[in-house]
Design a protein around this nucleic acid. Structure first.
Lengths: 202, 202
DNA sequence: GTTGGATTTCAGAAACGATTGAAAATTGGA
DNA sequence: TCCAATTTTCAATCGTTTCTGAAATCCAAC
């Protein structure tokens, strides 16, 4: 059941019909199959990475599919390709749009919504980092500052040691924070510069 | 039950008995309570961050406790402080030791095992990055290379576009890989250099 | 070799997050 | 305005991961 329907309903991307000459049919089909296998491999790898980093498997799969497919797909395309439910695809696509790494596009004369993934890898990672920083990093910094102040109120040695430990962590995380801020800044030149400079150090 | 045993079995670090003068008992108790509250806050914040990044909650909590407590603790200390089962603590401590961010120490004349967390924040993050790179990044790179070769075998335009997309991602990830390698290298000077340089760029 | 405290293991339970599917809401067109 | 296609929502379900607790194992001291 895995291969039989794979060449069927899963490529409704509009004008690129399967109307190629019969002489090319067999080679094209095998080339398509090869590409599809490679896509599957890509999707699996990306999903595995995602779930190791706290991203729901399906969300990573949908993103991987849209990225590697390159062209816009609609809900039904994604459902058919990944075999997940309509509701799940709907929620997942919305989440990806919220993250800013997938965009909703409209095709004239088609009431369906289509979705494309950000194709610029640098922009992709800048966006991901910006979001994760906002959602996880900044709250952690706030909590650590609270926590330092809480323990710092105590004059006992234990309190001072506590504060020192929190401070060490805080300093480090604030540094990472500043670096990531530079990376995600509009010009986004930070990491490129860093990469170049690091490359030169022996 | 939270405060009463805090001065009891929770600091078994040898000869430092609870023999402080009665005149200091009240202030010290309140200072201890403040520190404990601050520790709790720290543990909660660290656990939240951890679970956003795919680390089991208990594992993050145990690590946070050992880090913020600073001194060695045994299984019973951790069980009592975090209210988790013996089995869970045992498995979690083993995992933390495997990660290399917690160490097993022995106290003479005590058959229990004690555990301390790495206190050097730079070393801590270097170790974490080294492990995550090894466990997640490197396999992803391998999979992406496979996947590029798979799709690249097809000469069809779709195959070439596929390969181009995988390559873009691969280039980016390889760059991050090289940076992280520099960061985790024995001297570990990489990020410090980057931080300094980035700090100077306007 | 035996004892007894400490640790580890692991099958089952509990908790949690992910997924479904059908009903409700929305939307563009007639 | 109404209709039909499409999307969204959400309670129920499912599957996975995590946690427990007691039994098995380990190990230092005697």
């Amino acid at each position: 059941m895995s291969d039989s329907n794979s060449t069927g309903p899963a490529r409704p991307t509009g004008p690129t019909g399967p109307a190629s000459p019969a002489t090319l049919a067999a080679p094209v089909a095998s080339a398509d199959a090869a590409v599809r296998d490679a896509q599957d491999r890509f999707i699996a790898a990306w999903a595995q990475m995602g779930s190791a980093w706290g991203i729901p498997r399906t969300m990573a799969e949908v993103h991987a599919l849209l990225y590697i497919h390159g062209e816009a797909m609609n809900t039904d395309d994604v459902m058919a390709r990944l075999a997940v439910s309509r509701g799940n695809v709907s929620m997942t696509l919305r989440a990806l749009v919220d993250w800013g790494i997938v965009f909703r596009v409209h095709h004239r004369g088609d009431r369906k919504d289509y979705f494309v993934a950000e194709q610029d890898v640098w922009k992709l990672f800048r966006t991901i980092i910006r979001e994760r920083k906002k959602r996880e990093f900044d709250p952690l910094l706030d909590a650590l500052r609270d926590c330092r102040d809480l323990g710092g109120a105590a004059r006992a040695p234990a309190g001072r040691e506590h504060t020192a430990r929190v401070d060490e962590l805080l300093d480090f995380i604030e540094m990472v924070d500043r670096i990531s801020e530079r990376f995600i800044s509009p010009t986004g030149i930070g990491l490129q510069v860093a990469a170049r400079l690091l490359g030169k150090v022996s």
